[in-house]
Design a protein around this nucleic acid. Structure first.
Lengths: 199, 199
DNA sequence: ACAAATTTCGAGTAGTCACTCTGATTTCGC
DNA sequence: GCGAAATCAGAGTGACTACTCGAAATTTGT
């Protein structure tokens, strides 16, 4: 008689290489969405770039919108957030200079943040929350600087936070149209110099 | 014998109501492209909104890209540019407050300026030139202010021009996600107060 | 009023889209 | 190595896309 086995659950979990496959898909999707946008970029485009069939791609991400959310969420976790505490000014400038190097990332945000304002777009919630979170974070940093007497009098932290984020996105957008004319980090630095006190 | 007529040129020109029809199409297209984007917004959507067949629409605009360019060009000519000369600060704020009232216009620019960065997009040239022209215009205004001693020392006119335009677009984008939290004109006014000297 | 040109549109074309169904192939716990 | 589950993919689904064709309806100069 054979031993009584544990009841078959019918589950075994993903294979070893599945994580790597999903990662390759997300990387390709980032590239496709950044260069063509979400609606104009097709699942076939992504599958071609990965080198697999569109059907197999849909095995890993059931719907196209799932793929978009996976791209956006990954980019959040790969932030420069944890390099240890750092003064606000330096954090902003470091992040700005780092983003330039990541191919397609700034374009992804420029394309998707605009496209996602349209009705029913699967990225809408993400960007709504992202802007809200960023504004809160920057407002807090600026309030701390004001308490330390390092903020120029008359500057409203909440408004300056929205302005800084807007300046960042807006100048980055211009850079996509005229890469040699516009310097994102320099514009951010100049703005920070205006609202922060020296010393 | 009948009199010899002038040779038939075969041309008679558009009918009287054609101009009005084209205008209705452009208005509907602005609405569609603003709420759905260029790629996601279909000619059928525009035709439905006008109340005509898609085929008739294509009689007036041979290709979809022609329709987009017509929308963009019209919005240029309807600028607030000519209300007589006006100080730079007041011109920017007036324009900012005026844009809020034009339904869908800010959304059109937010959606299309992002989408148009993608490769082969028919709006790419338009936005490249629009940003270039705006930067030149604002740079000139700020240089004049500097010559008049009204610009804060250390502020670079070209960089401030790009920053002002970026701030404008970026904060407007945030406003589309959080209409009650963000005030475009107030952010612009605060920035202008930072770079311009009182008096 | 006539006729030619403009405007309209029903019907169709070829293509693409996201997504499903079905079955083959690969992996891996046992 | 057996077998079930995970992975892959060929073939198709219906819906949508921009755009074309040919012909009917409308406008308008004469």
């Amino acid at each position: 008689m054979s031993v009584q086995r544990a009841p078959r659950t019918g589950k075994r979990g993903p294979y070893a290489k599945t994580a790597a496959t999903r990662q390759k898909i997300v990387d390709a999707a980032l590239n496709v969405f950044a260069t063509r946008g979400y609606h104009a970029g097709s699942l076939q485009d992504v599958a071609d770039e990965v080198g697999m069939s569109q059907t197999s791609l849909l095995h890993h991400f059931k719907r196209k919108s799932d793929l978009l959310l996976a791209v956006l969420e990954q980019r959040d976790s790969s932030g420069v957030s944890r390099l240890g505490p750092m003064p606000f000014r330096e954090m902003v400038l470091l992040q700005a200079r780092a983003n330039v190097d990541i191919a397609g990332l700034t374009q992804l945000y420029a394309v998707l943040s605009g496209e996602s304002t349209t009705e029913g777009h699967p990225g809408r919630d993400y960007f709504t929350q992202r802007f809200e979170r960023l504004r809160e974070e920057y407002t807090g940093e600026l309030e701390a600087l004001r308490a330390a007497g390092k903020l120029r009098p008359g500057v409203d932290p909440a408004q300056a936070a929205a302005s800084l984020i807007g300046l960042w996105d807006g100048v980055q957008l211009q850079r996509l149209y005229a890469p040699d004319t516009v310097d994102v980090a320099a514009s951010l630095e100049a703005y920070l110099d205006l609202i922060l006190l020296p010393e």
